[in-house]
Design a protein around this nucleic acid. Structure first.
Length: 442
RNA sequence: GGAGAGAUGGCCGAGCGGCUGAAGGCGGCGGUUUGCUAAACCGUUAUAGGGUCAAAAGCUCUAUCGGGGGUUCGAAUCCCCCUCUCUCCGCCA
């Protein structure tokens, strides 16, 4: 969420930034000034009446204490009530509208983000590694996996439907190895603390990180959650949704807290499954396990001081890249354009891994700097500890990135490490996690 | 699932109809004292939203004592509902 004062004072800039994203400023901010004005007028009126009521009530107290009667005063106050009731309701309703309107505005992208309307305008920042050369036609992962008996999509469909996968034998072990490998790398070499959060969260948490209210249809909702209430802007702490990413529970760890500056930056890593409804993705990536309703991910999350978030963003992206480099998977780093940058993000790098079986680069990580956008929604602040500082609390900056999407790493290994006989060589760093297995064969 | 107890500021903790935005302590910040450190002492220290202001500061108003509703001229304090925490019992991986 953007700061109300900031929007009020920089309306043209905000509208311009919205246009860069391909959003419609008129739809989002068309009545901003009018709404702002009437909201403030209503609040002023209601508060003036409350001040009067409080003053008169005080007089009642004083008279009673002095042993005088106060019937007339009490009558007067009672007479205010109807008027106050209406004013209060009006003010509350306008305030709610303002909040909902503000909650629907995406974050402002940073100036270095390339202008564009879609992923076609993303900027490739760097390319790493050598694409493997094959003296045979490389196969896509679904053919390799099914032939090796380590991936069973047909039975997954029987169990759960489309867009689910069953991993068997060395396939299951490879998935588990990747999770352990990534967590170990981030905790021992990159300084992250491991977190194992709940896989279900309440709607308040999803509001804080920006998934609600706008993107409810992308989520799996448990039966105790009320999508209509969410659409009205009611976020509860006693309903449940399946997490679409560990970003949600991990970022919300410090919701409504004031952190000590000396603790920053806080760097956390978490393995979780991720559940996505993939609404609107019908017909997209239907083959293989690129796009699933459930996939595993190791996530990186940081809480930083505002002045450090840019440098920490670079560091976090490097931490994700190092997973690919250690596994020797060719990739490129892409700076997303204004049109492709996510709702809550001010700047996002995607890492795209080379998939020889399909002959293209595919997103395997997305590393974003949300600046204070999520922190403002989640009310995560820090208090300056440095001497001389005024002790005023400020919003932290939050960042996160996949380090990495495990399912896509799994399939990237199959495609990049495949052999002419259909077997797959296990990358050296994973062998210790696979009981020494060097090659997955039929 | 049943029974009971509780939820107050950065933290601990008092208050149980008006004098309470909230005692006291801890912590933080500023200062005095002091070879240094420590200690002691003094002062200060919530958040959000209105109004005023060119703006900031300041001043002022409103709201906030887990969340929501109610009673009352007036609610941290009384009543109802919900959530969470703790204790005991039951069930359970």
């Amino acid at each position: 969420m953007l700061d109300l004062n900031f929007v009020r004072g920089n309306l043209e800039l905000v509208e311009e930034k919205l246009r860069l994203r391909g959003a419609d400023p008129a739809a989002l901010l068309g009545n901003f000034r009018a709404l702002d004005r009437s909201r403030r007028d209503a609040i002023t009126q209601a508060e003036q009446l409350k001040a009067l009521r409080n003053e008169l009530s005080h007089q009642v107290g004083a008279r009673k204490k002095a042993g005088q009667e106060a019937v007339a005063l009490m009558e007067e106050i009672r007479a205010l009530k109807d008027r106050l009731d209406i004013l209060d309701k009006t003010a509350a309703s306008l305030d709610e509208q303002m909040h909902l309107s503000l909650s629907s505005i995406p974050n402002l992208t940073r100036s270095e983000v390339p202008t564009g309307s879609s992923e076609a305008d993303n900027l490739t920042v760097k390319t790493w590694g050598h694409k493997p050369k094959f003296d045979f036609e490389p196969k896509p992962h679904w053919e390799l996996g099914e032939a090796l008996g380590i991936l069973d999509l047909d039975r997954a469909a029987k169990l759960s439907g489309a867009r689910f996968a069953v991993y068997m034998g060395a396939g299951a072990r490879l998935e588990r190895a990747l999770i352990s490998f990534m967590l170990d790398l981030h905790t021992t070499r990159h300084g992250y603390t491991e977190v194992l959060p709940p896989f279900m969260v309440n709607s308040k948490s999803l509001y804080s990180t920006g998934q609600l209210p706008k993107f409810a249809e992308d989520l799996f909702r448990c039966s105790d959650a009320d999508a209509e209430a969410v659409a009205r802007g009611e976020f509860k702490d006693n309903d449940h949704w399946l997490i679409p990413t560990a970003e949600v529970p991990v970022t919300n760890l410090y919701r409504d807290e004031i952190l000590d500056e000396s603790r920053l930056p806080i760097c956390l890593t978490a393995y979780t499954p991720c559940f996505r409804a993939e609404a609107g993705a019908a017909g997209k990536d239907t083959r293989g396990i690129i796009r699933q309703h459930q996939f595993q991910k190791v996530e990186l999350v940081k809480f930083t001081r505002p002045q450090e978030s840019d440098a920490e963003h670079e560091r976090l992206t490097r931490d994700a890249e190092e997973v690919l480099e250690t596994l020797n998977l060719p990739y490129r780093r892409v700076l997303l354009s204004t049109g492709d940058t996510g709702f809550s993000s001010a700047k996002t790098f995607d890492l795209e891994v080379w998939l020889p079986g399909q002959g293209l680069y595919r997103e395997i990580s997305s590393c974003s700097n949300f600046e204070a956008f999520q922190a403002r929604r989640a009310n995560i602040r820090y208090k300056a500890a440095s001497p001389g500082a005024k002790g005023k609390s400020e919003f932290v900056h939050t960042l996160n990135g996949s380090g990495l999407a495990v399912g896509r790493t799994w399939l990237a290994i199959l495609e990049n490490y495949q052999q002419a006989d259909g077997s797959v060589v296990v990358p050296t760093p994973l062998r210790a996690y696979m009981g020494g297995l060097e090659r997955i064969t039929r």
